[in-house]
């Protein structure tokens, strides 16, 4: 989180402040995570939320969809879910004597893939292909998905029973992976006092028009990244490849993802240029799911990412 933004740097009013504020009222004490999720969507990336059940993963994606005015659909992944359950099927209409395509739940602007790691790899890959291509091929016909198209996937930690962990190649498709974690004491108390926040979701009205989203995404992509900043991103990527804490380093695609996320983060702060602070702020969310710890191939710890930041001088 950017702790301090000086007037000289924030030349424009900050957009999306209302969204962040309203979302903050639903998901208590998770401002940083909400902002990361928003940054991820603005950068045109897909989001993976990993946490234990009941931490507000679904609420977060639902909230975002409502506030941004996006058409929302939810797929609950189970072990017996088939690819066609996601993409849709053609059925024969007797009256017209022809096949009619019934689009699956993936045909929405914001798709919540709940507990994605409970489905079989075959089903998982059907969604992941849709994420990558922006289109779905059913029975030999290619159908474009709506624009914009976001996937917010949630998954339970891999050690839980009955899960199929996403392979690294597929994790790479997500721009960010965030964890919500337990709320702090104050937030938890407010939650208990206020009752379930789920109920208040219906009170939310869209703050923005989804039609404007591509324009904002264009602005985000045009946020100025100076030479020294690119140097910094490059240095971080290179350091991850040298660091003994990781099994392997960040890929070039990860470097691109890091820069895109940092741009988005800077834009949300109302700045016209990206600062090293932005890169540092998004690095854990962008890098953790792409790296494997050198000790036993387990997930990287947050401390490893902090150490990575400390090993690179800011140019």
């Amino acid at each position: 989180m950017l702790k301090n933004t000086f007037p000289g740097l924030a030349a424009r009013p900050r957009p999306f402040e209302t969204i962040l504020e309203q979302a903050g009222r639903i998901i208590l004490g998770k401002d940083h995570e909400i902002r990361l999720a928003l940054a991820c969507l603005l950068a045109g990336g897909h989001l993976l939320i990993e946490d234990l059940p009941g931490m507000g993963k679904t609420t977060l994606s639902h909230t975002l969809a409502r506030l941004l005015g996006l058409e929302f659909s939810r797929i609950q992944f189970t072990s017996d879910l088939l690819p066609a359950d996601i993409t849709g099927v053609s059925i024969f209409e007797r009256e017209k004597s022809e096949f009619h395509f019934l689009p699956g739940p993936v045909f929405a602007q914001l798709v919540l893939a709940d507990e994605i790691n409970r489905a079989t790899p075959k089903t998982q890959s059907a969604l992941l292909e849709a994420m990558e291509e922006g289109q779905v091929t059913v029975e030999g016909r290619t159908r474009p998905l709506p624009m914009p198209f976001f996937v917010v996937a949630t998954q339970n930690p891999a050690y839980q029973v009955g899960t199929f962990a996403l392979p690294e190649s597929q994790l790479d498709r997500f721009l960010m992976r965030i964890e919500l974690g337990y709320p702090d004491r104050a937030a938890e108390r407010a939650l208990l006092v206020g009752g379930g926040q789920r109920a208040r979701l219906d009170e939310l009205t869209p703050v923005l028009d989804a039609k404007n989203l591509p324009a904002w995404q264009g602005e985000v992509a045009a946020t100025h990244a100076a030479g020294p900043l690119i140097d910094y991103v490059q240095a971080l990527v290179e350091a991850s490849r040298r660091a003994p804490a990781f099994l392997h380093g960040l890929s070039p695609r990860a470097g691109l993802a890091l820069l895109a996320a940092a741009r988005s983060w800077a834009w949300l702060a109302g700045r016209e240029m990206v600062l090293p602070d932005d890169v540092q702020a998004v690095l854990p969310a962008v890098a953790r799911h792409r790296l494997r710890s050198a000790q036993g191939g387990a997930q990287t710890r947050a401390e490893d990412i902090a150490a990575l930041i400390r090993s690179v001088a800011i140019p």
């Binding site: 950017l2 702790k3 301090n4 933004t5 000086f6 600062l275 090293p276 602070d277 540092q280 930041i309 400390r310 090993s311 690179v312 001088a313 800011i314």
Partner: peptide
């Protein structure tokens, strides 16, 4: 100032 510290953090 640590080499990895951003100017904004330093100002803080």
């Amino acid at each position: 100032c640590a080499p990895w510290e951003t100017p904004l953090e330093l100002a803080q």
